[in-house]
């Protein structure tokens, strides 16, 4: 069952890759690239918010740290793109560990945790917006240089394929988590943290590991975002839009499931494009649809689309047994 889920997701990624190789119109390819960046961000969010039940409203803090590390290291220090990528992920994870250490030491969870992550992201946004080091309000650009070593390609399909590989790796990471003792502890503390603690789970340590992993993965998405658009500013990198998009995709697709973030990101962004083309250029309508879907999901499908289908299946097999 779980294995089938992983295989399904991998097959989907391979089909996307093949489609791109056969040839896709440029705007569709750009949409797919963006979908995969959001998927990665949401996969990062899912490790903490989905499996651990700690809903963060401030994953922009990690996304932005990745994006800025990628840009500043390459532009101001002339560091190789791949080295910058590794540094970006490490820095993102470090920011995650820092925020996690402070919040979990204070025992924050639920709404309090959501609020404090949001506040941290805002502090970073204001700092990035006013420091010269990060280009201030004008933002920063990455120099255009094509080649594998620069992680920039004149043919954007190669970038897309690399992105697909990262998404697949994140899927394997989630799969490993689901099967490991660490994942079991994490899910146990989501269900009932006091009971988990009473059974001897070191919940502080498990939460710390989860937020570090989650932040690192989301920072990776930030690095790739910067590398794809070659321009960032504080409102893009640390803006609340990305925190919300990550949370939306994971929850709508199915928080705490393997392929939830992928389903959510593809569906939401696809739907967003459809809305945009029907709304005739009125800004904001796509986000209205997102918001309504989120409310409907919480009301009718608390485990997201993935959970909704799992439920249907269970109900159908129960009905078959009864008959």
């Amino acid at each position: 069952m779980k294995k089938a889920e992983l295989l399904c997701a991998l097959a989907f990624l391979i089909v996307l890759g093949l489609l791109a190789l056969v040839g896709l119109p440029g705007n569709i390819l750009n949409l797919f690239i963006f979908m995969m960046i959001i998927t990665l961000t949401a996969q990062g969010w899912n490790l903490l918010g989905g499996y651990g039940g700690l809903s963060s409203f401030g994953h922009a803090a990690f996304f932005g740290t990745g994006a800025y590390a990628m840009t500043v290291l390459q532009t101001s220090f002339g560091i190789n793109a791949w080295v910058a990528l590794v540094c970006g992920v490490a820095l993102g994870a470090l920011v995650g560990a820092f925020i996690g250490f402070l919040s979990f030491r204070a025992g924050l969870k639920g709404s309090y945790f959501a609020l404090i992550t949001l506040a941290f992201a805002e502090v970073l946004r204001i700092l990035a917006n006013s420091w010269d080091f990060t280009g201030g309000a004008a933002g920063m650009m990455i120099k255009l240089q094509n080649g594998f070593a620069y992680l920039q390609f004149s043919d954007r399909r190669y970038f897309f394929l690399i992105l697909l590989v990262f998404v697949a790796l994140a899927l394997f990471l989630s799969r490993w988590l689901e099967r490991s003792a660490f994942g079991a502890y994490l899910i146990a503390l989501r269900e009932n943290d006091q009971a988990a603690q009473a059974l001897g789970v070191d919940i502080f340590r498990v939460k710390m590991q989860a937020i570090t992993l989650s932040a690192g993965l989301t920072a990776l998405a930030g690095c790739l975002y910067a590398q794809n658009f070659l321009f960032i500013d504080a409102n893009v990198a640390y803006g609340s839009w990305i925190s919300i998009e990550a949370l939306f995709a994971a929850i709508v697709g199915g928080a705490g499931t393997l392929i939830g973030p992928l389903i959510g990101a593809v569906l939401l962004l696809g739907l967003g494009e459809v809305t945009k083309s029907f709304s005739g250029g009125i800004a904001g309508l796509d986000l209205v649809v997102f918001g309504i879907i989120l409310v409907l999901c919480v009301a009718f499908a608390p485990n997201g689309i993935r959970g909704f289908f799992a439920n249907l299946k269970r109900r159908r097999s129960a009905a078959a047994e009864a008959a």
Partner: peptide, 8 residues
Amino acid sequence: LVTLGLSI
């Protein structure tokens, strides 16, 4: 999440 969705 519902109030977040509403605000959006």
